[in-house]
Amino acid sequence: TFVALYDYESRTETDLSFKKGERLQIVNNTEGDWWLAHSLTTGQTGYIPSNYVAP
Rank of each mutant, 00 (worst) to 15 (best):
G43N: 09
T41E: 14
D7S: 08
G43L: 06
E9V: 14
S10K: 12
T45Y: 11
R23V: 15
V27A: 07
G21P: 00
Y6N: 06
T1E: 13
I26K: 06
N29D: 13
Q25D: 07
S50W: 09
V3R: 05
Y47T: 05
E22Q: 06
E31D: 15
Q25R: 15
T1L: 15
R11W: 08
N51R: 12
N29A: 14
T45C: 11
G46S: 01
A54D: 07
E31G: 14
V3K: 04
N51G: 11
S50F: 08
K19H: 08
S17K: 06
T14G: 15
L24E: 00
T12E: 11
S50R: 13
T12I: 10
L16F: 12
F2R: 04
Q25H: 12
E13W: 08
A37E: 00
D33K: 12
A37F: 03
Y52G: 06
S39Y: 01
E31Y: 13
L16T: 04
A37G: 05
Y47E: 03
A37D: 00
R11C: 14
P55D: 08
P49V: 02
W34F: 11
G46Y: 01
N51E: 11
S17D: 05
L16P: 03
G46A: 02
E9K: 09
V53H: 03
T12L: 11
S39Q: 04
E31R: 14
K20A: 12
W34N: 06
I48D: 00
P49F: 06
Y52Q: 05
G46C: 02
Q44T: 06
L5P: 02
T42S: 11
P55Y: 10
T45R: 10
I48F: 03
V27G: 05
I26M: 06
E31T: 14
L36S: 03
Y8A: 01
L40Q: 07
N29E: 10
V27D: 07
E13S: 13
K20N: 04
Q44E: 12
Q44Y: 09
D33F: 15
V3H: 06
R11Q: 14
F2Q: 04
W35E: 01
S17W: 04
F18V: 08
P49K: 07
T14F: 15
K19Y: 07
L24V: 05
V3W: 07
Q25P: 00
K20L: 05
V53I: 09
W34Q: 07
P49G: 03
F2G: 02
E31S: 14
T1P: 07
L40G: 03
I48V: 12
K20C: 07
S50H: 08
G43T: 03
I26R: 06
H38F: 15
Y47V: 05
F2I: 04
P55N: 08
G43M: 07
G46H: 00
A54K: 12
G46N: 01
P55I: 10
T42N: 06
T14Y: 15
I26A: 08
N29G: 14
E9G: 04
W35S: 03
N29P: 14
R23K: 14
A4Q: 00
I48R: 00
Y6K: 09
L5Y: 03
L24F: 15
I26V: 11
T14M: 12
S10Y: 03
T45F: 10
L24W: 03
K19M: 09
F2M: 09
Q25M: 14
K20I: 07
L5F: 03
D33V: 11
I26N: 03
T42R: 05
A4N: 01
G32D: 12
H38V: 15
E13Y: 09
S39P: 00
F18G: 00
H38S: 10
W35M: 06
S17V: 05
S17N: 08
I26T: 03
E22W: 05
Y52T: 05
F18T: 02
V3G: 01
G43H: 13
T1Q: 10
S39G: 02
T41Q: 10
E31V: 12
E31M: 15
E9F: 12
A54Q: 12
Y52A: 14
A37P: 00
T14A: 11
F2D: 00
P55V: 10
Y6G: 05
R23D: 05
L5G: 02
H38C: 14
T1Y: 15
T42G: 04
Y8F: 10
L36C: 12
I48W: 00
W34S: 07
Q44G: 09
L36F: 12
A4S: 05
P55T: 08
Q44L: 14
T1D: 09
V3M: 08
D7H: 05
N51C: 15
N28E: 11
T1W: 15
W35T: 04
E31K: 13
R11S: 13
R23A: 10
E13F: 09
L40H: 06
W35Q: 03
N51M: 10
F18M: 07
L24P: 00
D15Q: 15
S50M: 08
S17T: 10
R23H: 15
A4V: 09
L36Y: 12
K19Q: 08
V3E: 07
A54R: 11
I26H: 01
L24I: 07
R23G: 05
T14I: 11
N51I: 09
D7L: 02
N28S: 14
L36Q: 05
D33C: 14
H38K: 15
T12G: 14
V3Q: 05
G32V: 11
Y8D: 00
V27I: 15
I48T: 01
N28A: 12
W34T: 08
N28D: 15
A4R: 01
V53N: 03
N29S: 14
G46F: 02
S17Q: 07
V27M: 14
H38D: 02
E13L: 11
E22P: 00
Q25G: 05
V53S: 02
T45G: 05
K20V: 08
D7E: 05
W34Y: 12
T42K: 04
Q44K: 15
Q44I: 08
N28F: 10
L40I: 09
I26Y: 02
P55A: 11
T30C: 12
E13K: 11
K19W: 04
S39T: 02
P49Y: 06
Y8L: 03
Y6C: 13
W35L: 08
N29F: 15
F2P: 00
A4C: 08
S39V: 03
I48Q: 00
E13A: 13
E9C: 12
E31F: 13
W34G: 04
N51K: 13
G32A: 14
Q44V: 07
A37K: 00
N29M: 15
Q44A: 11
F2Y: 15
W34C: 09
L5D: 02
P55Q: 11
R23M: 15
D7R: 03
A37L: 02
G21A: 03
A37T: 02
Q25V: 15
E13N: 12
V53E: 02
E22F: 02
S50A: 13
G43I: 01
D7K: 04
T42M: 03
Q25Y: 15
D33E: 13
H38R: 15
A4P: 00
F18I: 10
T41N: 11
R11E: 12
S50K: 14
T14Q: 12
S50P: 08
G46I: 01
Y47L: 09
S39E: 01
T12M: 11
F2C: 07
E9Q: 12
Y47A: 03
K20S: 07
Y6R: 13
Y52K: 06
G32R: 13
R23F: 15
T41H: 10
G32E: 11
N51D: 10
T45P: 01
F18S: 00
A4T: 06
W35R: 02
N51W: 15
N29Y: 14
L36A: 03
E22H: 08
T45D: 06
T1C: 14
A54N: 07
N29W: 14
R23Y: 15
L40V: 07
A4E: 00
S39A: 04
S39W: 01
D7Y: 03
D7N: 08
V27Y: 12
L5R: 05
K20D: 02
